[in-house]
Amino acid sequence: MKRGSTIFLKIALILIGIPILALCIYVLPLIIKGAGEGSEEMAYVLYGILTIMYVSAIPFYFALYQSFTLLSYIDKNKAFSEISVKALKKIKNCAATISILFVAGMPLFYIVGEVDDAPGVIVIGMVIIFASMVISVFAAVLQRLLQEAIHIKSENDLTV
């Protein structure tokens, strides 16, 4: 594979990570500050949502790192190896973890949507759940295909 396409994908991964980092550093603390000024009951709900967002950033960045290493394996012509399968498995697990975190937090999104009369908040939570589940399933399919390709390759290598 051409190195230029993997460089483009690595840059895309970095560009995906920067807005989430900015959100965690600048925007979420502003929301926490604003939550302290509102009603006490809503503050606890917002703190719960923000906790879920901060905790979900950990598997998000771990999955980005694994994607980056997977692209490095492709550059080194190690795409059809067990380490690539392990990287895809970790990406799958991270995406599933993010989805589980947001499913657990959906009642909090519902409360915010009801109090503020903003059903868009619930939709945002649903989009995050759906997107992470799609990524998890896609990584699982790729993992399975890669395992089968490695198996076929090893059988062909043994055939004389």
Rank of each mutant, 00 (worst) to 15 (best):
F8T: 14
L28K: 10
K86V: 12
S132T: 12
M53I: 07
F60H: 02
L142Q: 10
A87P: 01
G38L: 15
I111F: 05
L146N: 08
I100N: 10
M126Q: 12
L88V: 10
G120T: 12
D157V: 11
N77L: 15
F130H: 00
T97N: 02
L13E: 00
L108V: 07
A104R: 01
K89N: 15
G125W: 03
L71F: 11
I16S: 03
D157C: 08
G17W: 02
A87K: 07
G105S: 07
A131M: 08
L9K: 04
E155M: 07
I74K: 11
I52P: 01
Y26V: 08
N93G: 04
I124S: 13
A35G: 15
I58D: 01
F130W: 01
L145Q: 13
E155A: 08
V141Q: 03
G36C: 08
Y110T: 15
I52K: 04
I128L: 04
V134I: 06
K86Y: 12
L23N: 11
N93H: 07
A43S: 14
V45F: 09
V27S: 08
T97V: 03
L30H: 04
S81W: 05
T97F: 05
A96S: 08
F102M: 07
L15T: 01
G125N: 05
L71T: 05
I25M: 10
T6D: 00
V85A: 13
L23G: 05
I52R: 05
R3S: 11
L101G: 14
I14K: 02
C94V: 00
I52A: 13
L142E: 10
L88F: 09
A87R: 10
L30C: 07
D75E: 14
E37K: 13
F80S: 05
M126P: 02
I20L: 02
K92G: 04
A79G: 14
I49A: 13
L108K: 09
T51Q: 03
S56Y: 00
L46I: 15
G4D: 11
F130A: 04
G34D: 13
A149F: 09
I14G: 05
S81C: 09
Y65E: 00
A104C: 13
L70C: 04
L30W: 06
S56T: 05
M53Q: 06
G113Q: 12
I18Y: 09
Q147D: 12
I135R: 00
V127A: 04
A43Y: 14
G125T: 02
I11Y: 00
A95P: 02
N156E: 15
Q143I: 00
I52N: 07
N77K: 15
I20W: 01
V27R: 10
Y65M: 06
Q143S: 07
L108E: 05
I18K: 06
T6N: 01
S99G: 07
A57L: 06
F68N: 08
L50R: 09
V134Y: 01
A118Y: 15
K33C: 04
